Amino acid sequence: MHETSEIVWLDAHGVLTLPELAEVCALQVGELQELVEVGALKPLQRDETACVFSAEVVMPLRKASQLRCDFDLDLFTVGLLLEHLLRIDALEIQVRALQTRLPYRP
């Protein structure tokens, strides 16, 4: 993988195909398809020929993939981890948004 592609994938507004997501997250395409089938990974768009994913899932999916390797976890557990990591990211965004509404306290 080229160094420049790492930078591109960190843009949360980008989109990735299933093979691209598999490559940057160190998972097999079949494994990602299983995660989609069980609802742990939700594509932005899905049809018979392709799935397109938000780049927002890259970092949580990479973290879940790394934990899988570190602790020899099964794919079902990776799906659970991914759901929780995505939820944590969403909650952190909400907390930051709420913090911006608070009065400044030095």
Results as ranks from 00 to 15, higher is better:
D70G: 06
K42W: 02
L44F: 00
E23L: 00
V36Q: 04
R62K: 15
A90G: 05
L32T: 07
L32K: 07
L35D: 03
G14K: 10
A55S: 15
L16R: 04
Q33W: 01
H2P: 05
V8I: 13
G14N: 08
D89A: 15
E56S: 12
V15R: 07
L82M: 11
E31R: 01
K63R: 14
R68G: 07
V95T: 13
D47L: 04
E6V: 10
H13Y: 04
C51S: 14
L81W: 08
V58H: 03
E3G: 02
R87H: 14
L67G: 06
V24T: 08
A22K: 02
R87W: 06
V15G: 02
A64C: 09
L86G: 04
E48H: 02
E37R: 09
D72I: 09
V24I: 12
L44M: 08
A40H: 05
E3C: 00
K63F: 12
E83D: 13
T17H: 05
I88A: 13
R68A: 10
R68H: 10
L67I: 08
L32E: 11
M1K: 04
V58M: 08
R62A: 12
D89E: 15
R96K: 15
D70Q: 14
V8A: 01
A64F: 06
A55N: 08
E48P: 02
M1Y: 05
E92I: 09
T100Q: 14
K63G: 00
E92Q: 15
V57R: 01
R101A: 10
F71A: 12
V95D: 09
T77M: 14
A50W: 03
L41I: 05
G79W: 12
D47E: 08
Q99E: 15
D74I: 11
L10V: 00
A64H: 04
H2Y: 04
E20Q: 15
S5E: 12
L41D: 07
L18W: 02
R62W: 00
L85N: 11
S54N: 08
L32A: 06
E20I: 01
S5R: 09
Q66V: 08
